[in-house]
Design a protein around this nucleic acid. Structure first.
Length: 592
RNA sequence: GGGGGCGUAGCUCAGUUUGGUUAGAGCACUCGACUGUCACUCGAGAGGUCGCGGGUUCGAGCCCCGUCGCUCCCGCCA
């Protein structure tokens, strides 16, 4: 399939059945071994490696001379015969190890300077520093590991397209030059040359456009969409990233979720995994109550529980004061945790404190005795209620839920890590749903959208608490795997009056302001909008998980550093004054 | 914006704790030898702005101050 005018075959696919054939190959010199009279070259292309053999019995003197002299990473064309290797000369570590190509002619068509970092690594040899790998990406991307990652990425993209297209979803494109949105993440701005002082923004997501597609009747849309957010980076966060963006009309929540389950199933299948056809649903409320976070890792237990009743009657100021002020005492019981040293438990407390908790209460039960600062305050009833088994460590936070949840989440994760409870082979998918519509700023009381301002409120809550939006749940949902959010979406607001009310609740109460900022959505909704909703998956993150890569940078061909720079091509850069002038821009605040 | 880690030969690292002769090793590279290697082997050689700038000192890779880059985390990411 990959044969061309210059080659008959590719390196990595040659096998014993090719013995006797005369082949032409092209590739990169991966490694070479010059034994004097004999020369061996491992030739590499994207399909793998094959050993080229050069010897006086079949290669002429000039071919031998070239083979001995060619440097690694040079590109060569060769012709020769595929020969079976004698059993003792086979290399079981190579897929092509039962054969070799006895080369009769060799041409160096792309001589290479000595590579700045090694492409072929010896066993156990470390990779070059990531800074250098990014600086010399043209070499780093030659490594089979990264090639495999990008090939898997390609296959996942094709599976996504085929899957969605087969189900009637249309791949529709949306603009890259869009309108700035003051909400959410910072925009990347693009100055307009023809309109002085005006700017486009790169899209944070195609959200509004895909809703407009629904208003237009396209009914089912998808896009492998590049999105841009000008926020600080992480190992799993890049300034430009790819989403599988989906929207559909005349659907309800479960329609989208079952589509999501099937799509995830198709992607995981492509990567060689078998996963359940159905993901358990969990309410946001339960996720926070039992795991302290909205994307719990269910590969292990250590569930949180409410121990307020146990502490209510105790003569212990820390908990009684907290309970009196309306807080709860929540915590978890860690089997085996009693073996940890004072210092190890202190480290857990430090973790809880770094998440905002005032402290971490602890009591352990070992050799029939209760131990720890809390132990002497525990009555017999309290001990019975806790029901600690021998070897258990119990950890508590007495604080409002908004404090205890993140603190206990961190503690739970660290305990699981220490006890080696995290089974990497498990894939625990869940759908978290019924998120609150808004989160309240504790200082100002201002409402902010938990998902985004186009998410529909739960109809039950609209009915029950029409004037208490802080109590509304949203028709939003996240797909979560092992503590990682793979994607999320919602049923959207299709009623323009409701959408206008949403903007008001979020502080954009001026109608003219709403029209100026979101008029193009409101107009679309007013023109007749079907019930619709959708979901978007973080494609890079999925590719990262399925390839086993430790960083998003390993599944993106030319990624940015954590300072949002491209070390390879060198971006961003300063531009000449005259280019700025044409864009009506002046740069201030730099020393240049 | 804040905190942690790292920065020494083309690459990976040692040396920094306790300042002291000419800064070392492996791989890669150059030259030489070698007809069955597959991380070939053996011999020889070349290769250094110890990230950068300043300071302390008789003397700094090592101590101090500043700064740059990469990275991990917090904030941020509707």
């Amino acid at each position: 399939m990959l044969a061309t005018s210059l080659r008959t075959d590719t390196c990595g696919l040659l096998r014993s059945q090719d013995v006797g054939r005369t082949v032409r190959l092209g590739g990169w010199v991966h490694r070479s071994r010059d034994l004097g009279g004999l020369v061996f070259i491992d030739l590499r292309d994207r399909t793998g490696l094959v050993q080229l053999a050069f010897g006086p019995a079949w290669s002429d003197a000039e071919t031998l001379r070239i083979a001995a002299a060619v440097g690694v990473e040079s590109v060569v064309l060769c012709e020769g015969e595929v020969v079976a290797r004698e059993p003792e000369r086979q290399n079981p570590e190579m897929l092509t190890g039962t054969i070799e190509v006895r080369v009769t002619s060799l041409r160096v068509v792309g001589p290479a300077v000595t590579p700045a970092l090694p492409v072929a690594r010896g066993r156990g040899e470390k990779m070059a520093a990531e800074e250098l790998r990014l600086r010399h990406r043209y070499l780093d991307l030659r490594r089979p590991e990264l090639q495999e990652n990008l090939v898997l990425r390609h296959r996942l993209l094709q599976v996504s397209r085929r899957f969605l297209s087969d189900r009637g979803y249309l791949e529709l494109e949306t603009p890259i030059l869009t309108k700035p949105t003051p909400e959410g993440a910072r925009d990347y701005l693009v100055p307009s040359r023809v309109h002085p002082g005006e700017f486009y923004a790169l899209p944070q997501s195609p959200q509004i456009y895909k809703q407009l597609f629904m208003c237009c009747g396209f009914d089912r849309y998808f896009q492998i969409a590049r999105c841009f957010r000008d926020e600080d980076l992480r190992a799993d966060r890049q300034p430009e990233f790819t989403q599988i963006d989906i929207e559909a009309s005349f659907i309800e929540r479960e329609d989208i979720l079952s589509l999501a389950e099937s799509l995830i199933g198709a992607l995981w299948t492509e990567a060689g995994h078998t996963i359940p056809a159905h993901f358990d649903r969990m309410s946001y409320r339960d996720a926070m109550e039992f795991y302290g976070c909205d994307r719990p890792d269910l590969r292990y237990g250590l569930r949180l529980a409410d121990y307020t009743a146990v502490f209510a009657g105790l003569d212990f100021a820390v908990t009684t004061t907290a309970i009196a002020s309306g807080a709860r005492v929540r915590g978890l019981i860690v089997p085996g945790g009693a073996a940890w040293s004072r210092k190890q438990v202190d480290e857990l407390e430090a973790l809880a404190k770094s998440a905002g908790a005032g402290g971490l209460l602890r009591v352990r039960h070992a050799d029939g005795a209760y131990d720890g600062p809390l132990a002497k305050f525990l009555t017999d009833d309290a001990r019975a209620a806790l029901a600690l088994a021998d070897g258990d460590l119990a950890l508590f936070v007495a604080a409002p839920d908004r404090v205890s949840s993140p603190a206990l989440d961190r503690v739970r994760q660290e305990c699981a890590r220490r006890l080696d409870l995290v089974d990497d082979a498990l894939q625990r998918f869940i759908v978290v749903m019924d998120f609150p519509m808004f989160e309240e700023d504790p200082a100002t009381g201002a409402l902010a959208a938990v998902h985004h301002p186009f998410t529909a409120p739960h109809p039950e809550d609209l009915q029950a608490f029409p004037d208490q939006p802080a109590r509304w749940r949203a028709l939003a949902y996240d797909v979560v795997l092992n503590g990682t959010e793979l994607g999320g979406g919602s049923i959207r607001i299709s009623d323009p009056a409701m959408q206008s009310r949403m903007f008001s609740l979020l502080g954009i109460s001026d109608v003219a302001d709403q029209e100026r900022r979101f008029g193009f959505l409101l107009e679309g909704l007013r023109a007749g909008a079907p019930p619709h909703g959708g979901i978007a998956f973080g494609f890079d993150r999925i590719a990262m998980l399925l390839s086993g890569a430790p960083s998003l940078r390993d599944v993106i061909a030319f990624p940015k550093t954590t300072a949002a720079r491209s070390l390879f091509e060198g971006a961003p850069v300063a531009v000449p004054q005259e280019d700025l002038a044409e864009l009506h821009l002046t740069v201030t605040g730099t020393d240049a």
